[in-house]
């Protein structure tokens, strides 16, 4: 079951060129990045990222530590705005709108583009209030409406049956895996368009990880998902497309800077990558 989706995609494979349009279903373009660079102060963490993210697909970012994949992910929902000194250059379009344009509110961007973090980070509040927080700040006041959103979100995150009798209990009493599913439920409660996931399973055991992966497969019919993962098997199991990042030494200033090496259908990346660096990484010879 694990590699089922991957093998299906393999069957559909045709010969292709590096960075050519993937053979997957060409869904609508959600993000269109053109030469995106991210700076922390004067340090350039990522440069020259050009890629498209497609609707209702799961796109995985893989690569060694320090290759800028999380940095790139955070550029998609303007999370860098809150870090002093961080800056995004290049063009990043979201459904054709410049995400960093002058009239764009970061708050509104993040409402549409949600994020699940590496470490489960529920609020120190009840399970109910965790889920209801997003809808509340976005103007839902009606109690029965909130009740419905909470139930629907928890059901979507496959958590409802486990917590329905203790919605008023603190979310911090849940297990790590449950907390992470709660965070996913909290994210989808505001009905986002995109869900960004930053190594969502790295703090979880294999059983909890399998649950989250299953959940991602179910959720992609409603959302576009971008996931950063250190776990190549995870990328192979869940994603439709995979982007391989690596860090390259910049000869000019002797600093390491993340670059996008190869971006293609997941099956292609893992069976027949075009770039030698990708092949070295996925076969374990590097990183």
């Amino acid at each position: 079951m694990i590699i089922e989706s991957a093998t299906e995609s393999v069957k559909a494979l045709r010969p292709m060129q590096r960075r050519a349009a993937p053979p997957l279903e060409e869904t609508a373009v959600v993000f269109d990045a053109e030469s995106v660079e991210v700076f922390y102060g004067s340090f350039r963490a990522v440069r020259g990222v050009t890629m498209k993210i497609y609707k209702n697909q799961i796109t995985a970012f893989i690569g060694p530590s320090g290759c800028g994949k999380t940095t790139m992910l955070r550029a998609f929902n303007r999370m860098h705005d809150v870090i002093p000194g961080a800056r995004v250059a290049g063009k990043l379009y979201y459904h054709g709108v410049d995400l960093y344009g002058p009239d764009v509110s970061a708050t509104e961007v993040r409402r549409r583009i949600g994020m699940v973090f590496q470490k489960p980070n529920p609020f120190p509040k009840s399970i109910y209030d965790n889920i209801a927080f997003g809808p509340r700040v976005n103007g839902v006041k009606n109690t029965s409406e909130l009740d419905a959103v909470v139930e629907k979100s928890l059901r979507s995150a496959a958590l409802w049956d486990e917590v329905k009798d203790r919605l008023r209990h603190s979310a911090l009493g849940l297990s790590g895996g449950q907390q992470q599913r709660l965070c996913i439920a909290r994210t989808i409660a505001v009905q986002p368009d995109v869900v960004l996931m930053d190594e969502p399973c790295s703090a979880l055991d294999p059983i909890a990880t399998a649950r989250i992966e299953e959940l991602m497969r179910q959720l992609k019919s409603q959302f576009t998902i971008v996931i950063v993962t250190h776990n190549m098997q995870q990328a192979a199991r869940v994603s439709d497309r995979t982007a391989f990042f690596t860090a390259e030494l910049d000869a000019k200033n002797d600093q390491r800077c993340g670059i996008l090496v190869e971006y293609d259908a997941t099956a292609k990346i893992f069976s027949n990558p075009s770039d030698e660096r990708t092949e070295n990484y996925i076969t374990g010879r590097f990183g």
């Binding site: 708050t107 509104e108 993040r110 949600g114 973090f117 980070n121 927080f133 997003g134 700040v137 909290r186």
Partner: peptide, 21 residues
């Protein structure tokens, strides 16, 4: 922890809403 602040911001909270949550 920054992760708790980011949790609120990532849901479309404003700065004040993030502080409260």
């Amino acid at each position: 922890p920054p992760s708790e602040k980011e949790a609120a911001l990532a849901l479309g909270a404003t700065r004040w809403e993030m502080i409260r949550a």
